[in-house]
């Protein structure tokens, strides 16, 4: 395989991985945009989504699509419950308290899950045959096609919700200025709850897709992707939806290229190095605007 072929192949792998990051990053960025919280538990919500999908498929013997939808639904509800009981009581507390609470929720999800399902990784059944297609110079397998398709559909739905529905407009209003939005009669608690729900559902989808793609899930699987997704969100400009999607894809591609051409052990370092470069030279992210404190 020539360098060029290898490059193209890593590009496909990168976009697959990046799609996963993008789905998680969307939830991160929505939550950050609306309540300025780095929700460290978001990666673990993705893990819970993967497990729900896993049990739907193995125990209930459901096909992929219903499993995916049920996982998204249940995980979305979980996200709303977490917001309701862990974050809402702290709405006026110092931000560090909420951040620490998020870390607490993260540990709780990880280890409670571990208590019930054991720390052993589970093998996700392979639902699709491994057929690969040659499209021009690219080789794409079934799993990747599915990841692309589902990611694109979900992003389209999200865009529709945020841009054209009443809830979406309210979300943007609350994100821009919570107090003013409330004065305009928007129930900000409800909107924040919906935001958590949607974000968590997207993470659950990513969880199920990762299970199908890598065939393995475990209770701590959310830690790194969660962090990477946050990096992706910052990369694109935190609080900006297209930024999170673009950041996720870019991060995925970079990681795939670093694994393919340098060494897979440096792929995490590459992600963080990029994060730091972006923060130093354009802290507001690739698509963000700079703001200064008024004196």
């Amino acid at each position: 395989m020539g360098i060029m072929d290898q490059f193209l192949q890593q590009l496909i792998n990168g976009i697959s991985l990046g799609s996963i990051y993008a789905l998680i990053a969307l939830g991160y960025t929505m939550v950050y945009g609306i309540i300025k919280l780095i929700n460290f538990a978001h990666g673990d919500i993705y893990m819970v989504g993967a497990y729900i999908g896993f049990f739907c498929i193995t125990i209930m013997n459901w096909p992929v699509l219903p499993a995916l939808l049920v996982s998204m639904l249940l995980t979305g509800i979980l996200g709303m419950l977490i917001e309701r009981f862990a974050y809402r009581p702290l709405r006026s507390a110092p931000r560090i308290s909420v951040l620490i609470t998020a870390i607490g929720v993260s540990f709780f999800l990880e280890y409670t899950m571990m208590y019930f399902v054991t720390p052993q990784p589970r093998t996700f059944p392979s639902l699709l045959d491994d057929a690969a297609y040659h499209i021009g110079p690219f080789i794409i397998n079934n799993q990747q096609i599915m990841i692309f398709a589902i990611t694109i559909i979900l992003m389209a739905i999200l865009t529709y919700i945020v841009q054209y529905t009443k809830v979406g407009k309210a979300m943007r209003a609350v994100s821009f200025d919570t107090e003013t939005a409330q004065l305009m009669g928007i129930n900000s608690n409800r909107i924040i709850s919906v935001t958590f729900g949607i974000g968590s559902a997207l993470a659950a989808a990513a969880g199920v897709l990762v299970g199908i793609y890598y065939n393995s899930i475990d209770p701590l699987m959310g830690i790194m992707p969660g962090l990477k997704a946050f990096v992706a969100a910052v990369l694109g400009g935190i609080g900006i939806l297209p930024g999170a999607a673009a950041g996720g894809i870019i991060l995925g591609i970079i990681e795939a290229l670093v694994s393919g051409f340098i060494s897979s052990t440096f792929r995490d370092a590459a992600a963080f190095a990029i994060l730091i470069l972006v923060l130093l030279f354009k802290p507001s992210g690739l698509l963000g605007k700079n703001t200064n404190e008024k004196v």
Binding site: L90, S97, F107
Partner: peptide, 20 residues
């Protein structure tokens, strides 16, 4: 070990609620 971390998490959240 697993229970330890779950308890730890609950203590942490409780602390933030009652003594931030």
């Amino acid at each position: 070990p697993e229970l330890r971390m779950s308890i730890y998490a609950v203590v942490l959240i409780a602390l933030m609620f009652y003594r931030p």
